[in-house]
Nucleic acid binder design. Sequence first.
DNA 1: TTCGATTTGTGAAGTCAGTCACAATCCCGC
DNA 2: GCGGGATTGTGACTGACTTCACAAATCGAA
Lengths: 209, 209
Amino acid sequence: MKSVTIPPASVARLPLYLYALETLQSEGMGTISSEILANRVNVNAAKVRKDLSFLGTHGVRGVGYDSAVLGQEIREALGLTRDFGVVIVGIGNLGAALASYDSFGAARFHIVGLYDTNPEKIGTRIGDLEVRHLRHLAADVAEHDVEIGIITTPTAVAQEVAQQLEDCGIRSILNFAQTVLHTENAAVRRVDLSTELQILGYYLRSDRG
Amino acid sequence: MKSVTIPPASVARLPLYLYALETLQSEGMGTISSEILANRVNVNAAKVRKDLSFLGTHGVRGVGYDSAVLGQEIREALGLTRDFGVVIVGIGNLGAALASYDSFGAARFHIVGLYDTNPEKIGTRIGDLEVRHLRHLAADVAEHDVEIGIITTPTAVAQEVAQQLEDCGIRSILNFAQTVLHTENAAVRRVDLSTELQILGYYLRSDRG
DNA sequence: TTCGATTTGTGAAGTCAGTCACAATCCCGC
DNA sequence: GCGGGATTGTGACTGACTTCACAAATCGAA
Ligand SMILES: NC(=O)c1ccc[n+]([C@@H]2O[C@H](COP(=O)([O-])OP(=O)(O)OC[C@H]3O[C@@H](n4cnc5c(N)ncnc54)[C@H](O)[C@@H]3O)[C@@H](O)[C@H]2O)c1
Ligand SMILES: NC(=O)c1ccc[n+]([C@@H]2O[C@H](COP(=O)([O-])OP(=O)(O)OC[C@H]3O[C@@H](n4cnc5c(N)ncnc54)[C@H](O)[C@@H]3O)[C@@H](O)[C@H]2O)c1
């Protein structure tokens, strides 16, 4: 496994390339130029080539990249050649929506547990999963192979939940609550609607000088 | 309105500072140092000060920032001193969850319309809003003052919906579909769970060398 | 086999973001 | 009204990311 470290900015674009590639492939394109990929993803073609060069890929000069090969190379770089177990904590509006969303990027990510603390939620089902009390988290994580935790609890308890996830050995957290989590080792990515709207607000404002 | 342009990286952090400030304020802190704010948001204190300096703020040396004043300055910079109308297109799992989420960052963002094309969805209610057919979008946007569009349709139609939003004069789009939108003038922010999980996948992978 | 049209891979240059470090300033107690 | 401790504001530095630009490689046609 040739594990050259890829700059974070490039890593964040790899999923976009992968998705664009899959689309193009399904449209019957066997080889793809950096130019075409760049247009799909709205970036500079040189950036595409540089990003792909971190994978140690070899496109063919004068031709482009073989879409099947390149797709596989990106999948390997992202570690998408195996499955990941995912748990969701906080099965409210948002948590339930995520739980019922099955096709997480070509099915490498599998939701294997749903947790809440509200007695009214415990025992309800979403798809073929039952919502369990958070107190079972540790045992469940130990038993199944869970690597990613998604937090969709109210903001006030998100930090506490993150701690529990870390205590169970989970090293990757996706946080939908409106707070910045402090973790010791876990990688955290934050997704927050309010933040995004506020950023859009800034650019709306500067529109009118 | 002193409209110095703020670097994008700083703009993206302002909402975090604002949220941290509001929390600290509610804990009774009247003045706040860059150090404390930095800890809350997990960044370097010098970065906080530099970011805040773009606002033309004036903290007090030896003391810190007045939390009420600073909060107001950030709100003004982000344009949060007025209200924004928001519409959501695609009222499925995710769209419905967003629609029922009322407290969008201190209520400056108001959802004023929900749209779908599926006859089974049309006419259903979420809160006090009724889901309307997408064909009413243009007229509704013209009538009410809508500035932000949220796309939660299937990926396949997201681009087409974005075009319609732009045609209605909407200049800011929040895109939850797994595709990169191409717009002429509108600012787009993309929020995608699959992408985030894949990024986490990379860092899980490199854990084990 | 050579030529022209393409397209990659990548050094070099340019731009932007993050950090350091410290003078300038302020508050408070005396 | 002076001194000590605290904290800001910012110039200079460092590093990361992006873009440019072009030689090197490939293909297909003549
Ligand atoms: N719904 C949205 O559109 C939306 C948008 C942006 C951000 N968010 C954020 O996402 C989070 C969830 O939002 P929501 O609308 O789904 O809220 P919600 O209130 O519908 O759901 C929260 C769920 O978490 C559960 N919960 C509470 N404490 C818990 C604990 N200690 N352990 C486990 N579960 C616990 C609750 O019982 C509830 O089921 C919030 O932090 C919110 O700020 C939501
Ligand atoms: N639900 C999730 O957890 C989740 C996670 C990541 C990404 N996404 C993305 O969010 C989007 C929505 O996901 P979802 O789970 O809510 O899907 P969904 O199928 O539940 O909802 C999609 C809705 O869009 C409507 N729709 C279809 N075509 C339309 C059109 N032309 N105009 C207006 N409405 C239209 C459908 O009738 C449906 O109600 C998808 O692009 C998905 O990839 C969802």
